[in-house]
Design a binder for these strands. Structure first.
Lengths: 232, 232
DNA sequence: AACACCAGTTAAATATTGTTAACCAAACGA
DNA sequence: TCGTTTGGTTAACAATATTTAACTGGTGTT
């Protein structure tokens, strides 16, 4: 897989160099421009995956540049670097269609998190958005902690258990197609993966035994569903 | 369709304004309150589809507000805006009945994804809340649970039994065309599927023996019907 | 009544799913 | 580095669900 290409436009030479250096270190391929005009030229010449734009810049400010870029390539994600308390700037930026903003001063780590978050989201925007928390019956799935909280306490989950419960909970009371679930979790719906999933279903049914309102029923040849009845 | 109404309670004026502006831009109808008390007053006055509550707020914190809201309108989804590392807060919030949380700082896009996910989920669960139930004679078919409740107790059904009983019950006292039922359940009305269905009819007749008021009669060459006589 | 056909029942064959335990490889800790 | 642990896969077997087959009894037609 080729490197992620970033168009960085920042007029402060210090910050610019730090950004470039750091992003290179982290495996990205940043192109640094010193002002909006230079940024525009680079954008026209090459293809990028994401833009980091300062707002206050000589010759052409970040907004103008962003607008022009969006006119040409609407789906190119843009992250603005704004001075603190520039609320109006932020709002203006969001209107243009920026995907996020980060206020100066920021830590490199924070920046990286934002960049990754945007890339992740824009890349697989068609994927189901993972909520952090799913509730069903007396259970709470803490998806990003991989923990299932039930009447008998908290239960650490393996990642496969976690994924499978998430899919079931997201489609609560609706049929989950076998092959669909397999493709989501294992990538393909081969025979052995299917058997593996059956093993996990069995494990999960045990975990869910603590609440009789909750059960996984199977629809032969189709899939299964998590049903939550509302009886007290 | 009218706009989705959001109750946003956030004491940081900067973040509050940004939230409001962004959500408006994205087609929502946010009402911004500066503290918990104001939020409570707005809540009492108008109807909302979702609440975004900061936790740390003057006058009335997010938890207290959430609890009060849930007391009045239990199904109103709540999303907490929490500071990082406030894990205890999060757990507490979830127990109150929050639907999700998002830790500051968060990107606008991330927030939007959460909001949409919650709305989608709660809307969906509205649709399915009424688990499908069919009554005939002394029987109740719990379609979603694949259970037939009769005078002798509950009976777990296979999915084919379940489907067939559902069709019969849905068309109670009316003729069910053979080929129609076959196409509904098996997809096509081939000879073998027809024989299969006969096997299931036989099984189902056994299940229905417990109530003499209920029986399946066949209309030669046409189909069959579930008849329920009125006699006590 | 004799025939053809349709439907009912039961049992056997097949396919799918459920469960447990053995196995394996990667990650971890001493 | 060597055991140990952990998560995940595979194998083996049990239990169910569904289909097919075989046989039986009806129904309508001539």
């Amino acid at each position: 897989m080729s490197k992620v290409r970033l168009l960085v436009v920042e007029d402060d030479p210090n910050l610019g160099d730090i950004l470039k250096e750091y992003l290179e270190m982290k495996g990205y391929e940043p192109t640094l421009c010193r002002d909006g005009e230079e940024g525009w030229n680079k954008f026209k010449k090459d293809k990028y995956d994401l833009c980091l734009l300062d707002i206050m810049m000589p010759k052409k400010d970040g907004f103008t540049l962003a607008k022009e870029i969006k006119k040409v390539q609407e789906d190119l994600p843009i992250l603005f670097l704004t001075a603190k308390n520039q609320k109006d700037d932020i709002i203006e930026g969001l209107k243009i269609g920026a995907d996020d903003y980060i206020t100066k001063p920021f830590s490199m780590e924070e920046l990286l998190l934002r960049v990754n978050a945007i890339l992740r989201r824009t890349k697989k925007s068609d994927e189901v958005i993972a909520l952090k928390v799913y509730k069903f019956g007396d259970f709470i799935l803490h998806y990003d902690e991989q923990v299932l909280e039930g009447p008998k306490g908290r239960n650490k989950l393996t990642s496969k258990e976690n994924e499978l419960i998430r899919i079931l909970a997201a489609e609560m009371n609706k049929l989950v197609n076998r092959s669909h679930a397999l493709k989501q979790i294992w990538g393909d719906d081969s025979y052995f993966n299917a058997r593996s999933m059956d093993v996990y279903l069995s494990k999960i049914r045990k975990l869910l035994k603590d609440d009789p309102k909750v059960q996984i029923i199977t629809v032969h040849g189709e899939g299964f569903k998590l049903i939550v009845s509302e009886k007290q």
